[in-house]
Each structure stands twice: as structure tokens, then as C-alpha cells.
Design a protein around this nucleic acid. Structure first.
Length: 428
RNA sequence: GGAUAGAUGGCCGAGUGGUCGAAGGCGCACGAUUGGAAAUCGUGUGUACCUGUCAAAGGGUACCGUGAGUUCGAAUCUCACUCUAUCCGCCA
């Protein structure tokens, strides 16, 4: 949701951004938007001068003489009617305008590769060595079965498809990963925060989930409440409507929460195993920084570096993908995905998604700060990145670290979080 | 779930129909005083939008939890909702 003034003054640039993000004129018509804004401004000006006149009259009444009073009241009443009509028209137009503005995506970074869909994403680098097994590697489902690490069939009967129940050392590993990442983030100055998984509707607009992907989110009509798909949703609204001082920035949150996603658009994809489930746990990195692209781009790199470090500490081969304009969501200015190698699928699968949102969310949540330099109030920039998301991250983890006998090695960095053990599994 | 109380500016807090964007205090900023500091004194200190301008100054409109209503006029009256606090019940 860029500034309307910016849109008017930079129409060609904004149109270019819309086109790059795959928006057609039917999706969002800039001319219509600008015309609507002009109409609103004109109407506003006239209704404000009407209000001014009305106020002046009202103020006269108290001191008016007895014979003047009825006249003034009648005149004021008449103005009031006129004013009311204009206000009605104004609120109708504003509603229409606001709806369009809510659909306005962020402008992509000039660095972002241009393309229609994920086929145009660009691999920036490969890190780590893809393992070569001198035995037939098992997939994560088989590894779980032979080690008594899961109750996948049984839990499907209880909780339905795309759910998981993992147990014993694997359950412990899941929690250990989060503890490891939370400790790391804390060492980088993040505040560890556990947040609810339920949310009112407004934060979903603030984050930019709505109005775009209503199908993706669980809704509980009885309580008019939504289930959160990520702690980003909650953290993004936590400081809504505040004016921070610049010295408070950056605000760094390491949010932990259960996450819920309907996966409506993924029917038939990854139906087995731990890759894509309706409920999972995520440790999220969330940053609120000064509203300056240089500053947020710096943090974007920092967040990326932190999650790369996580994958390196876990000794997982991965690649860094720069997501193209057409594959990026509406809120995003620039986005990297990290994908870890999954041996059984012979490909890289997404484990992290790292985005610079610039001021797009801040405008929606009305989160601002007072700049030191000139004392002016400005919108902050927000960024988010996965810290670690499980159980998906367990998939590359146990597959890459498996041995011929079905055991799984624990990388040294993670061993302290597993009670010092080096290997898990029935034969360990 | 039941009962009660409440929601005003960065914070505390006054204000129950008219000049209230809102007293007073605290905080903050600047200035005076000081060798320096504290204390003291003075001045200033919300946000959004419209208008205006090269920029500003200036003028205006709105905002006292949210939404609607009464009224010529609402922080103040009415209704609905939301949230907060306390007590009781239940509960991981």
C-alpha cells in the first residue's frame, strides 16, 4: 500500500511495478484510482468549508438575540443537511478507494529479477555439498517408521490429512531445533517472544494476508477469530498505531508460535510426510527498522545471513534463491528463499523465506517513528524471515544425516541441545 | 460463564451541552541562571487530512476506546460494540 501521493507523482513507475508483479488493469486500474482520489479531495474540500460555515453559525447562536436565533438555527440546520449528504457521498467514495488501496501491492526492488512465476526465480548461490551415499538412502517417512519416530497413519485417523505426530528422539529434535535458533537469535539481540496463534481480522489486513488469500487461513466463525499462519502476523500488529522514537529502533523479535495453514491451493502436493502440514511450529525473525531502504536492505541481508548460518550449523546443503517479481507476494519489496537439499526428492525444498516489506505493512498498521534528524514522523520498515520451521526442516535434516543402518547423525552444534548425543535411532 | 468499575494528549489527571485540541502536573526540547551540575525561572511541546507556498508561515476540518444516534452545537446526553481492571465460578 504505497502512498497515494507517491502513486500520483510516479504513475509510470508504479504502473511498471504493477506490471512486473503481474497485475492487469482488471486487477487494479491506476487511472481509476487516481481519478477517485481527485474526486474525494474535491468533495472533502467542499464539505470542510461547509463544516466551517456551520461551526461559525453554531457559535453565534449562544450570543444571538432572541429574534435572530430562530433564523440562525434554521440556516444552520439547512447547512447540516447539505453537509450530511456530502459526508455520505464522501464515505462511499472513501470506502471504494480504501478497498482499492488495500489491493495495491508493494513495488518490487530494482534488484529483483523480473518474471511471471517461480520459473524466473534466480539462484544466487549454492552452499554445502550434496551428500553422496554409498547405500540406498531412505526417505524421511521410512526413516521415521524404522526408528519408531512417528504415528503418521494413526494421527491421520484422529486429526485428518496433513497432520503429523512425531515421537521419541525426533520429537525432541524438533524442539531442540527451535531452542537452538532462539538462542542464536537472542545472541544477535532479538527479544524472544512467544505469541498466540489466534488473531482478530484486522491484523490479517495489516500483514497483507487479506484481502489476498482468504482461502489460506483458518477462520472460526463462532468466535469471529482467525488462526495465525505465522508469528509475523501477530508481531506485525503488536506495535500498531504507535509512534516509536528512532532510538528504539531496530526492534528485533524472535517469535515462536504454532502456525496453521489450510493449504487450499496445494491439493495433491506433498500429501505424505512432514513437508506440508496444516499445523506446524515456527520460530520467526521479525524486524522493525527505520524507514530507509538502505537500512532495511542492510537488515534484509543480516536476516538472510542468520538463517544461512542456521542451515550451516545444521550442516545442510542449500541454495539461496532470489524470488522474482511475479512469484513474490503483494507485500514484498524483495525476497530470498532458502532451500535445503532433500535427497529422496533429488531437489531443493524451501525451508526459509526472507522478505523486506519496506513500509508497506507499516502503512497498514500505522506504525511510525519520529526521525532524529528532523523530528518528522515517518513509517518504519518491517522485515521477516523464518528462523526455523518444523516439521518441514526435519525432512532435509534426517535425510541428509542418515547412515546405512537408519540412524541419524546430530551435527556438533546441535548436540548440546540433544543432551550431548551424537546419533539418534534404533541402532544408535 | 456471573457481578462490578472503568476507557481523555508520551504519562498522570481535571472536565457532565457552547470560545475545549481540551485546566493542572509529570516528562521532553530549547533558553536564562551556574565554573559545571542540581534546583529554580521562561518558552515551547499530538496526529491525520484539506488549503496555501519553491519551501515555509498562515488559514481550515476531523480526532477525548470504536460505531451509530439526539442537538443549531457533544469529551460531556442515548444506544450498540470493543477492550481493560477487580471479585466469584470453571480450568491447562
Amino acid at each position: 500500500m504505497p502512498d497515494i501521493k507517491f502513486i500520483i507523482e510516479n504513475k509510470d513507475l508504479v504502473q511498471d511495478g504493477l506490471t512486473k508483479k503481474g497485475y492487469t488493469k482488471e486487477d487494479l486500474d491506476l487511472d481509476e484510482l487516481i481519478a477517485l482520489h481527485k474526486q474525494i479531495t474535491t468533495l472533502k474540500t467542499s464539505s470542510q468549508s461547509l463544516a466551517e460555515e456551520k461551526n461559525k453559525l453554531s457559535n453565534q447562536i449562544k450570543s444571538a438575540s432572541a429574534e435572530d436565533r430562530p433564523n440562525i438555527i434554521a440556516k444552520s440546520k439547512e447547512l447540516g443537511e447539505k453537509f450530511k449528504l456530502q459526508e455520505q457521498e464522501l464515505s462511499d467514495l472513501s470506502e471504494k478507494f480504501d478497498l482499492m488501496m488495500l489491493k495495491m501491492p508493494n513495488m518490487p526492488s530494482p534488484e529483483t529479477p523480473v518474471g511471471p512465476d517461480d520459473s524466473a526465480n534466480v539462484v544466487r548461490r549454492y552452499v554445502g555439498e550434496v551428500p553422496h551415499f554409498d547405500f540406498e538412502p531412505k526417505d524421511h517417512i521410512e526413516l521415521m517408521e524404522i526408528n519408531d519416530w512417528s504415528e503418521m497413519e494413526r494421527i491421520a485417523k484422529v486429526s485428518g490429512t496433513r497432520t503429523y505426530a512425531i515421537k521419541n528422539e525426533l520429537a525432541k529434535l524438533e524442539l531442540a531445533m527451535h531452542m537452538f535458533v532462539l538462542d542464536k537469535l537472542r545472541s544477535y539481540g532479538f527479544q524472544v517472544i512467544t505469541v498466540p496463534s489466534i488473531s482478530k481480522e484486522k491484523p490479517l489486513y495489516g500483514q497483507g494476508y487479506l484481502p489476498f488469500s482468504r482461502d489460506e487461513v483458518y477462520y472460526l466463525p463462532q468466535d469471529d477469530i482467525y488462526l495465525s499462519g505465522t508469528a509475523e502476523l501477530i508481531l506485525n500488529s503488536l506495535r500498531a498505531d504507535e509512534i516509536l522514537t528512532e532510538s528504539e529502533l531496530p526492534v528485533l523479535y524472535a517469535g515462536f508460535s504454532p502456525c496453521f495453514r489450510r493449504e487450499a491451493g496445494a491439493a495433491g502436493k506433498d500429501t505424505r510426510g512432514l513437508v506440508r502440514v496444516h499445523q506446524f511450529m515456527k520460530t520467526e525473525q521479525f524486524v522493525i527498522c527505520a524507514g530507509d531502504v538502505n537500512e532495511s536492505e542492510k537488515w534484509h541481508q543480516k536476516l538472510l545471513q542468520i538463517s544461512e548460518e542456521v542451515l550451516q550449523d545444521f550442516e545442510l546443503p542449500y541454495r539461496v534463491l532470489e524470488v522474482c517479481t511475479g512469484d513474490m507476494g503483494a507485500p514484498k519489496y524483495r525476497q530470498y528463499d532458502l532451500e535445503a537439499w532433500v535427497p529422496s526428492q533429488n531437489c531443493y525444498r524451501e525451508t526459509h523465506s526472507c522478505s523486506n516489506i519496506t513500509d508497506w505493512q507499516a502503512r497498514r498498521t500505522n506504525l511510525r517513528y519520529r526521525a532524529n534528524a528532523d523530528g518528522k514522523v515517518k513509517y518504519v520498515h518491517t522485515l521477516n524471515n523464518t528462523g526455523i520451521a518444523t516439521p518441514r526442516a526435519l525432512v532435509p535434516f534426517i535425510e541428509n544425516h542418515q547412515n546405512a543402518d537408519g540412524t541419524v547423525n546430530i551435527p556438533p552444534k546441535l548436540q548440546p541441545y540433544m543432551g550431548g548425543i551424537k546419533k539418534i535411532g534404533k541402532n544408535a
